[in-house]
Design a protein around this nucleic acid. Structure first.
Length: 966
RNA sequence: GCAGGGGUAGCCAAGCUAGGAAAAGGCGCAGGACUUAGGAUCCUGUUCUUAGUGAUUCUAGGGUUCGAAUCCCUACCCCUGCACCA
């Protein structure tokens, strides 16, 4: 049967809106629950992966609604940064890829034309996120409170937040080295490439600049190295003969570096200027004095040197650097050295590798060893050769760092571990004026504007001092009192808070965001303006409705409504907001806060969540500290990588909803795996969830349209007990926010029970009505549209989204046990039937003899007194003359019973004993016969006239029938 | 490097913070029912063995225990985050 999901969804979404279910109002005295998901940054269209966490948040909110809470689930977006600026720029320039991307995701060409201003982009995506994603998924979010970090009222809130940080002495200034675009200012370099167009994997490395004095020319050749500990192994120096180098003046010294490096130096040091240039080939053959060694070494030509990396000059340590080893071998065979550069042969000959570091598993020259081991000399393809060299470098560096020890030749550093020597030698050379520090990126990084990004020193950078000890400890203490899932993160967050240091909180350049209130040349950066914001959702309602204006939202306003500082009259006077309204807002803030759950993707574990906690601790009082954090893992692409929003290719959300229906997607997210593992996106899996839902809908429809009304019997008791059990399971699971377990119960266990009830002939109207009310209600959090539809079909009043989940009745193990027993009998018969040879037409079932029941009863009684042991039980049995006559059979059974009872629960055993198996099976005889396809006879093992040709009956025990087939 | 997570049957995935069921559930596969064309539904089965209560399994190897997928140790392998990125 084809269902129009879109129509069904729209119908119920409208019904919810009409009833204003999503609009959360303070209800004094009613318990509240406030949940948010970490709002998304506006970087383009979202994909099916993002909806995982959002959907879970909505489902949790809905669950809380149906269990007595007044729920607030607000949403917003984060537009800070330059994503929207660059997107608008690209659109303005009609960048083909960008336009394509927009159109492919459903933006009309006319609309694309209009997205040329950053705020247009912001507003466009704010609309897309709310209307095309969240509303389509049926979220009961309070849209009236929607906020965006670029709204003027939000900015007022951020200004206030920073005022508070400053008052608390948590803002500090110090120099900082940042990736910097000459056009846009500092940029974020990270794999998601939000700010940049190339080089997201680049890292900032700290090089040691080594100064080599060249007496002949009166200048320093300056090399950059990552391994200052290897200076004792320097034997020569590499320069590119085919490029020109720059001569720069720095603090009265003359340095030679590649022109690219000269540019970078100017960004990181004062008083650097380029004063001339020198061709690389003129450097070849010069002798220069190596730092630390204080020995003259020759400059040799090398073409592996990259002028874009470091200084474009390299000191050579062939013993430990594979490329140096390789280049040295090559240069020694190069006749140009003598003929072109006039280097004396004895100088060339004197250059020999020096062994300086001993590493377990390597010989004197680790560089040579790794080259041999990886058989790099045999690689012909230049690209692959280069890659192999890189790999070799990494391996030998890493092994050297961890396992290496400095050899005796290394002066005062001899015997030290490399890890330790590295810093000490670096510092020694800096102190001696032979070295300096320099930072560079490992890859070329290009800003979204097209300019190349370099590291720049920024002197007056503002930081939030997250290293503050009191703040850290206070935050850690709060985190210990919070509900944090998964449990690993509960433990882990303590350590994360420990290593949190000062964090840059503002940046220069053209960025969207709030201006730094103490110096407007700075803009508050993206992480720092998204830490305390959940509390703002309690206020945004009033700004959005125009009851208060940004101009009125002065610090004293926030002080009053959030921190309860000041008095209404004077704040009212200063802001122009009526005292009544001030008090109303204040009451709202303190009704909804603290935040109960902040849910976000796992990427937030070391970024957003810690600063979220820290800022709350820094600014808000104890009673407003957050209560919970939930972390969700990703939906990944086929190759286990995160589905990238920028790279496209992922299923656009509106298409997926149209194809599978919102509820199938919701069920998929809730049930496909634990929240705490990554899931590979697979449309076929979503489809099976859709089928599952359709099956359930068909089942309910069939049950509702059932005409007959069979009187209630044991199977009705069974179903009611099962549903009570399930209600308990649901509540237990949701106490741990375990949506997946809850969904298993609702969509699988309960569905199976309904099917079994029907199979057993259950058709009692009252039972069905009660069961359906529970079942459909339990579906509401995960599949609200389907639940509403079924709720209506079943004839229940109102909206299920407003209904309260019934409390569980008492669970009856006895009522549940009968069916378990029955299923065991059937599966045993089937099992034996499979094994038996020949035609089987009849099954004879024997129930336990009375004496065994008696023994179990005795055993239970003894167990309850806590003195059940096999010998005692046997003794008691043997006191009975009738039992004694059966001897060994009795003692065997008794000891087995005693052991069994120690494991299983006594309640279950009592349920078994409490049942008249014979009567029960008699009543179910026809059902068994139909299930196994055999004629069925039932006897008690005690029946005198039983049919028992194989003598099977004696095997029968309570809970376990004996079976004979023929 | 620093910090952390994990290896479960053909696949996905529970269970493993409280040790006691060949190991939930789903998918896939096989057989059957129904009855038909739908990416159906419903039963049954899906380690080996066997007229059922047996044997061997949860990366590998040790250990603790009456008993371990679950606790401890070792090895191998995989993965994640790491700060002006939300």
């Amino acid at each position: 049967m084809a269902r129009d999901y879109a129509e069904m969804e729209a119908k119920w979404q409208k019904a919810w809106m009409d009833r204003k279910l999503n609009e959360s109002e303070r209800k004094d005295g009613k318990p509240k629950f406030m949940i948010i998901f970490a709002y998304p940054g506006i970087t383009g269209y979202l994909h099916v992966g993002h909806l995982r966490g959002y959907t879970i948040a909505d489902a949790l909110g809905r669950y809380k609604r149906m269990t007595g809470y007044n729920v607030l689930f607000p949403v917003g977006t984060h537009g800070t940064g330059n994503g929207c600026i660059s997107l608008a720029n690209k659109i303005r320039k009609k960048d083909e890829k960008t336009v394509d991307y927009l159109i492919r995701n459903g933006c009309s060409p006319e609309k694309v034309e209009k997205l040329t201003e950053p705020m247009d982009v912001v507003n466009f995506f704010n609309d897309v996120y709310q209307n095309d994603y969240w509303k389509r998924f049926g979220f009961l979010a309070d849209w009236r409170r929607f906020t965006c970090t670029l709204y003027p009222d939000y900015a007022k809130f951020i200004e206030w937040q920073f005022t508070k940080l400053k008052e608390n002495n948590l803002l500090i200034q110090k120099p900082y080295y940042a990736p910097f675009c000459p056009e846009c200012g500092p940029v974020a370099v990270d794999p998601s490439e939000t700010d940049i167009s190339k080089g997201g994997l680049a890292e900032t490395q700290e090089y040691t600049l080594l100064k080599f004095w060249c007496e002949e020319k009166k200048f320093f050749l300056v090399a950059a190295t990552l391994r200052p500990e290897t200076v004792y192994g320097q034997v020569c120096f590499w320069a590119r003969p085919d490029i020109d180098y720059s001569i720069v003046e720095k603090d009265g010294e003359t340095w030679v570096v590649a022109p690219q490096a000269a540019e970078k130096l100017q960004l990181q040091f004062d008083n650097v200027r380029t004063v001339g240039s020198v061709p690389g080939k003129e450097l070849i053959g010069l002798m220069c004095r190596a730092p630390m060694l204080h020995k003259l070494i020759p400059v040799f030509p090398a073409d592996f040197v990259d002028p874009n990396i470091g200084t474009g000059l390299v000191t050579s340590v062939p013993s430990d650097a594979p490329s140096d080893w390789d280049a040295l071998e090559a240069v020694k065979r190069n006749p140009d050295l003598v003929s072109v550069y006039n280097i004396p042969q004895d100088v060339i000959d004197s250059v020999e590798p020096i062994s300086i570091i001993s590493i377990k598993g390597y010989g004197d020259f680790p560089a040579k060893d790794i080259i041999d081991k990886m058989k790099i000399s045999e690689i012909k393809d230049p690209e692959k050769f280069k890659e192999a060299m890189e790999e070799a470098k990494k391996v030998v560096y890493k092994d050297g760092y961890h396992m290496g020890r400095m050899k005796d030749i290394c002066g005062e550093f001899a015997g030290m571990r490399v890890e330790e020597a590295k810093d000490k030698m670096k510092q020694a050379m800096i102190d001696a004026g032979e070295a300096d520090l320099f930072r560079d990126l490992t890859l070329e990084v290009v800003c979204r504007c097209g300019r190349t990004v370099h590291i720049k020193r920024i002197d007056d950078q503002w930081f939030i001092n997250y290293a503050d000890q009191k703040l850290t400890e206070g935050t850690q203490a709060n985190a210990k009192n919070m509900t944090i899932y998964p449990p690993e993160y509960y433990d882990n967050v303590q350590g994360v808070l420990d290593w949190y240091r000062e964090r840059a909180c503002v940046r220069l350049g053209k960025w969207l965001g709030t201006k730094f209130p103490f110096d407007s040349k700075w803009t508050i950066e993206a992480i720092s303006d998204s830490t305390l914001y959940p509390v703002y959702y309690t206020i945004s309602l009033y700004a959005n409705s125009g009851q208060i204006t940004p101009e009125q939202m002065k610090p004293c306003f926030f002080d009053y409504v959030i921190l309860e500082k000041g008095d209404a009259a004077s704040v009212s006077k200063e802001t122009g907001i009526s005292a009544d309204l001030l008090d109303k807002i204040k009451a709202d803030v303190h009704y909804w806060y603290p935040l109960d759950i902040n849910l976000g993707g796992k990427e937030h574990m070391t970024v957003h969540f810690p600063v979220f906690l820290l800022n709350h601790r820094a600014i808000l009082p104890d009673e407003m500290q957050p209560k919970g954090i939930l972390v969700n893992w990703y939906v990944t692409g086929k190759n286990k990588d995160k589905i990238s929003k920028s790279k496209g290719g992922a299923q656009p959300i509106p298409g997926a909803v149209a194809k599978y229906g919102a509820d199938a997607m919701r069920l998929y997210y809730a049930h496909v795996a634990s929240m705490y593992v990554d899931v590979e996106w697979d449309e076929d899996v979503v489809f099976t969830y859709r089928q599952k839902l359709e099956k359930i809908m068909a089942t309910v429809e069939a049950l509702v349209s059932e005409e007959s009304d069979v009187p209630a019997g044991p199977i009705d008791d069974w179903l009611m007990s099962r549903f009570s059990t399930h209600l308990n399971e649901i509540r237990a699971a949701m106490d741990k926010y375990d949506l997946r377990s809850m969904a298993t119960v609702v969509y699988y266990d309960m569905a199976n029970d309904m099917r079994w009830y029907e199979r057993r002939g259950g058709k009692n109207k009252a039972t069905l009505t009660k069961a359906l009310r529970i079942w459909i209600n339990a579906m509401m959090p995960v599949t609200p549209h389907v639940a509403e539809e079924l709720w209506e079909i079943a004839g229940f009043n109102g909206l299920v989204s407003e209904a309260q989940l019934p409390e569980a009745d008492a669970v009856s193990p006895a009522a549940e046990y009968g069916e378990v027993f029955l299923q065991n009998v059937i599966s045993d018969v089937n099992e034996i039937k499979k094994m038996a040879k020949g035609d089987i037409t009849k099954a004879v079932i024997y129930t336990s003899p009375a004496w065994k029941i008696g023994i179990v009863k005795d055993a239970i009684a003894m167990a309850k007194e806590g003195k059940l042991t096999p010998p005692d039980l046997i003794k008691k049995c043997m006191a009975d003359e009738n039992l004694k006559r059966m001897g060994k059979e009795v003692s065997n059974f008794a000891s087995k019973t005693a052991v069994d009872l120690k494991r299983g629960s006594i309640e279950d055993r009592e349920a078994i004993i409490g049942m008249d198996e014979r009567a029960f099976l008699d009543s179910a005889k026809d059902f068994i016969a139909a299930e196994v396809g055999l004629e069925v006879q039932v006897f008690s093992a005690d029946d005198e006239g039983r049919y028992d040709p194989a003598g099977k009956a004696k095997i029968a025990a309570p809970g376990r029938t004996a079976i004979y087939l023929e």
